[in-house]
Design a binder for these strands. Structure first.
Lengths: 211, 211
DNA sequence: CCTACCGATCGGTAGG
DNA sequence: CCTACCGATCGGTAGG
């Protein structure tokens, strides 16, 4: 569309419009593989399952990825990158620690519960990722978690939370990430309602020192 | 032992002492299978892995279980039953809601972080359990969760918690069950320290109504 | 990206 | 519980 060139010669107008470029096919594989890895697990998902899902023959995914492991890594990194993008967008312009925290919670829930399966795959198929790939994924993962850490620190400074230690962050991540196990869209609770419960769960503004 | 019969004839005293009875072999298979299912995942664990771990040949586990699925179900039910037993023991004689809650948290953490892998397998390999086996496992699972539910209700009545809805229970389970992902024995935090953080995370005794 | 294929491995079984 | 084995399936590749 945007790239159409108005030249002098007729140009091959009827070039097969159905042929997607390579990047699209690759992302399509990542998306479908992500879904399958999350639903059935990495090991129970076969290359044939994935190929079927995008309408390819069983050998063809290897044109885009050199191995099944490579697909897993690609799924996880894709999940992290879109999480980072959402996180950045959600936090943009916010100054208040509490607002930032709310934005983080909402953004995280959206990433793990809406649309995309890539981030949940990162959470629940970590075991299946080979040792060699882990370092690469961890590097991106650390960037994502660092934002949480600093926001929790600000919350603590503002007296909105009693403890910003690593344990608390891990407990919070547990409550957040576990939602993947039970949340079903249209199942009574909206995503925002869960977010509000989560925030109430963590913030204790009226009790600077509990118990 | 209890069944030994004192007859008149010498009786075969030196019956091979190294031969374990069938029940022991079965539990041994369950224990090792549980470990492997948790470490590598159900699908990535082969019958040969399990047989090796208990010193059997690859076909022999099928003398004790009719299929691999059957082993998975056995692992999960074993995990639930010992969890129920621990739960009962921990709660015995307690009256105070807060004490009961503390006991539940400690008992749960012990079950999922100490020794046994069976309960974590239930948590993280649910997907691998076939539809037919699920109902059976769910029945036992419901009994375990009912105790939590009623204790949370008591906490609410006592004003020690602001909300005893299903969401809160699920968030709490998330924080609890996620510990399996990061807790390592001897890694700085003791189990009791985690329990205390968890309890502070949930109880807000001084704020009957937050925000 | 397809066709045709391979070696390896897997869950499970028969017969003792 | 072992031996010996089978059919099915899987990740991956060569050659186009």
């Amino acid at each position: 569309m945007a790239r159409s060139r108005e030249g002098t010669k007729p140009a091959p107008r009827k070039a097969k419009a159905a042929v997607p470029d390579e990047g699209n096919r690759r992302s399509e594989l990542i998306r479908k593989a992500g879904r399958l890895f999350l639903e059935k697990g990495y090991d129970a998902t076969t290359i044939r399952d994935i190929a079927d899902a995008v309408g390819m023959r069983s050998g063809s995914p290897f044109y885009h990825f050199k191995s099944k492991q490579d697909m897993l890594k690609a799924v996880m990194i894709e999940g992290l990158q879109s999480a980072l993008a959402s996180q950045e967008e959600a936090m943009a312009g916010l100054r208040e620690p509490e607002e930032k925290f709310r934005a983080l919670v909402r953004s995280h829930l959206r990433i793990i519960l809406e649309d995309h399966a890539e981030f949940p795959v990162l959470l629940y198929e970590w075991r299946a990722l080979s040792g060699e790939s882990r370092a690469e994924v961890i590097a991106v993962k650390d960037r994502y978690e660092a934002v949480w850490q600093s926001t929790l620190k600000e919350l603590k400074k503002a007296g909105l939370v009693n403890d910003d230690s690593k344990v608390v962050r891990l407990l919070l991540f547990g409550a957040l990430n576990w939602t993947v196990q039970w949340y079903r869209p249209g199942g009574g609770l909206t995503l925002d309602q869960i977010a509000d419960h989560m925030i109430d769960f963590v913030l204790c503004p009226d009790t600077p020192k509990k118990r």
